[in-house]
Design a protein around this nucleic acid. Sequence first.
DNA 1: ATACGCTGTTTAATTTAATTGTCAAGCGAG
DNA 2: CTCGCTTGACAATTAAATTAAACAGCGTAT
Lengths: 188, 188
Amino acid sequence: MDIGHRLRAIRKQRGLSQRELATRAGLTNGTISLIEQNKTSPSVASLKSLLDAIPISLADFFATLEDQNTSKYFFTADEFTEIAPSEITEAGSPVLSLRQLGNARSSSLQVLHEKYAPGADTGPELLSHEAEEAGIVIRGEIEITVEDEVCVLGPGAGYLFNSRLPHRFRNIGTEECEIISACTPPSF
Amino acid sequence: MDIGHRLRAIRKQRGLSQRELATRAGLTNGTISLIEQNKTSPSVASLKSLLDAIPISLADFFATLEDQNTSKYFFTADEFTEIAPSEITEAGSPVLSLRQLGNARSSSLQVLHEKYAPGADTGPELLSHEAEEAGIVIRGEIEITVEDEVCVLGPGAGYLFNSRLPHRFRNIGTEECEIISACTPPSF
DNA sequence: ATACGCTGTTTAATTTAATTGTCAAGCGAG
DNA sequence: CTCGCTTGACAATTAAATTAAACAGCGTAT
């Protein structure tokens, strides 16, 4: 985890001095010096200020830092990363679970293992980017709305549509619903 | 930047208490309490310790934190089209079934519902076109070979690799194996 | 050479994060 | 209910990050 050298590399790449970056980020040059020498571990607030001033996102900063493209092809179930917005029931179990295969940032394919508790509802979403979305129901039932079309799908059934169309997923049954879905491209 | 709520959501999803996570990360429960309430901005060192103990990567943590944006659309199970080469066992049931969602020829996304009978084997394939391939195992077990790496995946596990790499699927178990997979682009 | 403007580093003072110990609330078993 | 155990939150202390200011190095122009 050499965030110091990475920060320095990015800063120099943009032709910024420590003082210049410090001013933009609302910090001091001394702080940047210490961080770049790994003599201190900045708070995420400080680091975010610095990256915003460069600018580069935290995700990209760490992505290229950690992701030294180790050829990883296989994933155990617990290596999936949960990307669902954090809705929790009173019981503490998640209403909606979207578990992503890999980090899918480097790849052009995003595959998800989805679980919808009874009553779970994504609400109408409006996605603006060009992409396609498809999936197959494994277990339970789900009501899917795309534009003005509504359909209830059971195990073995699937869907396929353009992501920019308004769409909505609702589990209207009494059983948990499980879906495997894919998305392309996962660009933002 | 609500890292507090995101950390809490992930922690609860894994069923961890503040103290439990604190022990694993080498921090204290009080610290986690403050972080989750956004009453303090943790150092990246602290945050990394926490995420390592969960585990989830910093990149994924910030990736899903920063981009929460988020005709025929529906297909019944029998509307899937079988695209596997027709191999039939003595019993008359197919050894290998690759059922494609939609015709997927017009789309840039190909999703398959795959079933491998015990002993089924795709043999080593060499695909030349640039594409990505990913999937999740629903039932049974499958041995997958990519380049020189071999892995046996069970229910919930998944794979993700570039299609031009030589790869092979073999059901080495006694049970039928079921997989949902995705491919992009589906050029033939 | 002296002075200037810039670079990045270092030290002591300050601010902030993390720890420690304590507290009340919730839950299940006896 | 009471006991024991766990959970998350809080106040005071300790540890660490951040600041402000001084430092040394390097070119360049005065």
